[in-house]
Simulated assay, not measured.
Amino acid sequence: MIILKSAREIAIMREAGRIAARVHEALREAIRPGVETRELDALADRLIREAGGVPTFKGYHDYPASICTSVNEVVVHGIPSSRRLREGDIVAIDLGVTYQGYVGDCAYTWPVGEVSDEARRLLQVTQEALQLAIEQCRPGRHLGDIGHAVQSHVEAAGFSVVREYVGHGIGASMHEDPQVPNYGQPGTGVVLRPGMVLAIEPMVNAGTWEVRVLPDRWTVVTADGRYSAHFEHTVAITEGDPLILTLP
């Protein structure tokens, strides 16, 4: 069941999204060679709580941290640890903030120092795909339009979209209906309506779209070991233009 949000609920989600975006800005400044991913987690946890929010991820289905730190070939759900970032790495930071009972969810992938040309292009194409998807978030369009916007841009660049993990509706719960795939055909799927709020999150691999899950049952990696990038915004469908809720 798709839950439409009121103007009041969207306003609360906007504040949750602002907190998430400001935490991302602080994390971006903290990312450098030598930093441990668990240090980034501790920073995010502190900043979220100081802003009056709660880290949505912590304890969600027993997830042990406040953010996901997915390095290089890790697609999503990387668990912060003593791993130190190195020059040339890329690290996707995914985080959720619960504020007054509603969630804002967003992800960015950052370069660590100087990265390869392919890595930089992967980040650029994934971020462009997210923006193209957001442009489709208008009343009367379809979920298939969102997925097609991502897939066509990514594949034209020679990369691939992950199939097993998708975006989602969001509100009082982090995961609500509908699912929002990063692939699809235009004009198919659920019709978008004002009041729908979606977490749109292209996950793009440099090589194959296939992935596998590590024994910790959380960490998802590319099947071929090549890099993956992840960008995400929480977006409200309005009577007019899309409203991105996870901006500073």
Rank of each mutant, 00 (worst) to 15 (best):
A133S: 07
D45H: 15
G147L: 04
I12A: 01
P248F: 00
G34D: 09
A129T: 02
R84S: 07
I10P: 02
V76A: 13
I93V: 13
V162E: 10
D216R: 00
A236H: 00
V180L: 02
V150C: 12
T246Q: 06
E39V: 01
R22C: 02
N72F: 05
L85V: 09
I146R: 01
A229T: 09
N182C: 14
P248W: 04
A199K: 12
L95D: 07
G34E: 04
I79G: 05
L4E: 06
V71K: 13
G78L: 10
N72A: 06
L130E: 09
H153E: 13
L122T: 03
H175G: 12
P215L: 02
S228D: 03
R141F: 09
I67K: 01
V75R: 06
R120L: 14
G96R: 09
E25D: 11
C68P: 00
V211Q: 03
E232R: 15
Y108V: 06
L245F: 04
L214E: 08
S70P: 04
A26T: 11
D45E: 13
D105F: 11
V221T: 08
H175M: 15
V213K: 09
V23M: 05
A172E: 15
R212H: 13
E118K: 15
L130P: 04
L143V: 10
L43M: 12
C68W: 11
G88N: 10
D216H: 01
H61Q: 14
H153T: 13
L130V: 11
I19C: 00
P178N: 02
L123Q: 09
H77D: 12
R141L: 09
G167L: 01
E36W: 00
D117E: 15
P242L: 07
G207L: 08
R212C: 12
H233I: 05
E201L: 10
D45V: 10
T56S: 13
P80G: 09
A229Q: 09
